[in-house]
Nucleic acid binder design. Structure first.
Lengths: 215, 215
DNA sequence: TTGTTTTAATTAAACGTTTGTTTAATTTTG
DNA sequence: CAAAATTAAACAAACGTTTAATTAAAACAA
């Protein structure tokens, strides 16, 4: 029953470098030679281990996708105290999920814009659906308890959740990359921004779900 | 004082095709030969008119950027009745701005993820700043009138505005592209989604700005 | 432990394509 | 006739990938 070691050290090294370069410069702007140089392996090793550049990207995707899928399951089974607590918990866990996989999400967001089919397309689709289900469950729970308004839109909320977090992180990175500050300061500011995002997103969602003054 | 005709018919044709292919398949996955074929011109015409593929992208960007900048000016000078009306108007105009330039925004979102410097970088930065100023102005107005809470975050709100609209449109497109429906039905659904987005984003923002039940 | 064989890993070089771009000749336009 | 537009062809560079040769590691028999 023990989990097989899927990738050896060298393979993991290649995948790590590939992820970073794909995320920072884009898949097409990253050559196999770039990856090989930074991973300190021969160019032929990529084909030898992964078959092709496409398959390497796929391997990187599957690798992260598995752990993301697991994260979703954890969130879905979480039992919060109140309806609003559940919404808070979803936001927390979703932000954590993205914050812990920043490089992968940068890559994913970029690729999701042009994908039309194939395994990567399917994976991204599954994640979006999982996110919507998550929001739907929490919303319905609150509605049944009579705490949340009935006229809320799950598709909209899901878009806001994903889009806001993405944009907030992108803006933060965008801003930090062009300031002359130390790495430590960078991480502090990044952390502050994430915490602010957390607080305000919760407040905004709960206000949207519970506010009775707006029509 | 008459506006010079910047681009002749053929140039505009090339730019239109380039924008579409860049947006749909990505800049790097689009070859000059692809553009030339669909625009029904010789490959050499791109270099002849624009200098290079890079410059063509830049020309496409500048072209749209100018009209976007103009749109921002209109929004910034708008005089709504109440503080909430002003917020509503900003959301309306921002959504219209993106909805009317869907291809360009798809391209821009994608490229903004990997740009590190250069003219395109500067343009995108200006747009982000303009958006933040816009939100800031409306928020301060409402706060001075005592209608809005004091503890709201402009950086956060700007991220939510841009991110939510982007994500909503991306999700809608993603979903529609894989349904067997006519173009007319597609447009109807797209329009519905945009209207829902409008309504709910306004409600959410105003709830966030005015709600007094949440801490 | 040895020596031997087999498999896996690693390399430099080459391959065929595609890419963006340029050239030089020709046609169209003013 | 001169300038602009258009073309087919060619160019060098970069790309992903493969090949064939070599080295390192693992497996095995004595």
């Amino acid at each position: 029953m023990s989990e097989k070691v899927q990738y050896n050290e060298k393979q993991q090294q290649i995948m790590a470098v590939a992820l970073r370069l794909f995320a920072e410069n884009g898949y097409d702007k990253t050559s196999i030679r770039d990856i090989a140089r930074e991973a300190e392996v021969n160019v032929a090793m990529v084909s030898y281990y992964f078959g092709s550049k496409d398959k390497l990207l796929e391997a990187v995707f599957i690798n992260h996708f598995k752990s993301i899928r697991a994260s979703f399951k954890v969130i879905l089974n979480h039992r919060g105290d109140s309806a609003t607590d559940k919404v808070s918990k979803i936001i927390d866990m979703f932000i954590d999920m993205l914050a812990n996989r920043q490089l992968f999400h940068r890559l994913m967001i970029r690729e999701s814009g042009i994908l039309k089919q194939g395994p990567l397309f399917d994976m991204i689709n599954e994640m979006k659906t999982a996110n919507r289900r998550l929001v739907e469950k929490a919303v319905k729970n609150g509605q049944q308890l009579g705490v949340f308004r009935k006229d809320v839109d799950v598709f909209f909320m899901s878009s806001v959740l994903i889009g806001s977090v993405n944009q907030n992180m992108a803006n933060t990175r965008y801003e930090l990359e062009h300031r002359n500050i130390t790495k430590e300061q960078r991480e502090i500011i990044k952390h502050e921004r994430t915490e602010t995002l957390r607080t305000h997103l919760k407040r905004m969602f709960i206000a949207y779900l519970t506010d009775t003054n707006t029509p």
